[in-house]
Simulated assay, not measured.
Amino acid sequence: MAFSPIITKLYGPEAFGLLGAFVTVLAIVMPIAALSYPVAMFFNAMQQWLIRKKQFKLVL
């Protein structure tokens, strides 16, 4: 916030509009992208658990 007067002198309103659009897109995309990895890890762990469960039943 301390540098905002300097930044407003360097960049025009068009640049701030472009920055706002970019930040908005990132705010929407990043949670979706971050959610996909933990969900994939959960499904992989669940699949491995089910395979072990089936193997255990076959042993008995």
Rank of each mutant, 00 (worst) to 15 (best):
V23K: 06
A27P: 00
P5V: 06
Y11V: 11
L18T: 07
L10K: 10
K54G: 08
F42R: 03
I32C: 04
V23N: 02
Y11D: 05
W49Q: 13
A21W: 07
G17H: 03
R52V: 01
G12K: 06
L18F: 04
A15D: 10
I32M: 06
A27N: 08
S36D: 12
P13H: 06
A45C: 00
S36V: 15
K54N: 08
P31L: 04
A15W: 03
V23L: 14
L26N: 12
T24I: 10
P38E: 02
A27S: 08
A33N: 00
I28R: 07
S4F: 14
M41C: 11
Q55C: 03
A45W: 10
P5R: 01
Q55E: 15
N44Y: 10
N44I: 12
V25C: 03
V39E: 03
L35P: 03
Q47G: 11
T24C: 09
I7E: 11
M1F: 11
I7L: 15
G12V: 01
F16G: 10
A33D: 01
A34V: 02
Q48C: 02
L50R: 10
S36H: 03
I7C: 07
I28F: 05
Q48N: 12
Q55A: 14
L18A: 11
F16Q: 01
F3A: 11
R52P: 03
A15V: 08
L35D: 10
A15K: 05
F42E: 08
A15I: 00
N44R: 14
V25A: 01
N44G: 04
I7N: 08
Y11I: 02
K53V: 05
K57W: 12
W49S: 13
P13G: 11
A34M: 14
I51A: 06
T24Y: 09
R52E: 11
L26V: 10
I32A: 09
Q48I: 02
Y37K: 13
S36I: 15
V25E: 06
M41L: 15
A21Q: 09
L10Q: 05
L19M: 04
M1N: 09
V29H: 04
I51Y: 00
V59H: 05
L50E: 14
G12L: 00
P31I: 02
P13Q: 13
K57E: 14
M41R: 14
S4C: 12
L50V: 05
A2V: 08
L60R: 10
Q47D: 06
F56M: 11
Q48G: 01
V25H: 00
I28G: 00
W49A: 14
A27Q: 07
V39D: 02
F56I: 08
T24E: 04
I32F: 06
I7D: 10
A34S: 09
I51N: 00
F16W: 14
V29W: 07
W49D: 13
K53G: 08
P5Q: 00
L58F: 08
K57I: 07
V23S: 12
Y11H: 09
I7F: 15
L58Y: 02
A15R: 00
I7K: 14
T8L: 15
E14K: 09
T24L: 15
L26E: 11
F56C: 09
Y11T: 05
